[in-house]
Design a protein around this nucleic acid. Structure first.
Lengths: 111, 111
DNA sequence: ATCGTTTATCGTAAATTTACGATTAATATA
DNA sequence: TATATTAATCGTAAATTTACGATAAACGAT
């Protein structure tokens, strides 16, 4: 990737792909499912639920945080994680209409 | 990635992340938007619409095809591309409920 | 003050992704 | 038949991702 021409894609294309990329790993899907299931902040025990080393889980959490899908708040020695409104809103505003669009388009497809 | 423990994630987590990964690049979002917009097969001129070399676009098309999001049919010298029902169905069955789940969970969040 | 717990970060290795130009294969067209 | 067109593939380079263990930083408990 010598040259990045990313500037030539529009804002919503870039944001959408950023969100999708953040969700492009089974561990990160598992993490957000966990956070949704508990419906509350989870302090740390995410690592116990995943078949990955602590440092790797921490890296995945960082990726989700960077994309704005989750947020983490330090609480003593531990860190409490929960879903971030911002990212979920973006998923609803960007991705839900896109899927709907794709669905109707597919039905009118010639193949 | 010396060791892949992917077998320890469940099928829907793996399929969901596979779809997300395929959509994790602005060029590939642009491609599916193009295919949806035209509502018909597009023979080749996708390259003209993107700020990328022909070989790179071909690579992105291959990635979308591998994930089952688009399909391509050879038609003479050209190849006709369109959205694939299979992939769009999977997006509806796997991702739409997930977003809904995340949304209600976020509303009940403590942070 | 010391010790244990928790989690982020560092260093590192291997795999994958992204991008390009060049080439190839297949089909139209002149 | 020769030539142009289209699109996939090859070869390659650079960046990024994924994973791990080791370490460090911060806090709580003893």
């Amino acid at each position: 990737m010598a040259i990045t021409k990313a500037k030539l894609f529009n804002t919503s294309q870039k944001r959408t792909s950023e969100l999708m990329k953040a969700l492009g790993h089974p561990a990160r899907i598992a993490i957000i499912e966990l956070l949704a299931e508990r419906e509350t902040c989870i302090c740390g025990d995410i690592t116990d639920e995943l078949p990955l080393a602590q440092s790797t889980v921490s890296q995945h959490l960082k990726a989700l945080k960077k994309a704005g899908i989750i947020q983490g708040e330090i609480d003593g020695v531990r860190t409490c994680y929960c879903l971030s409104e911002e990212g979920i809103e973006d998923l609803n505003e960007l991705f839900v209409p896109l899927i709907k669009n794709l669905t109707t388009a597919t039905q009118k497809n010639c193949c």
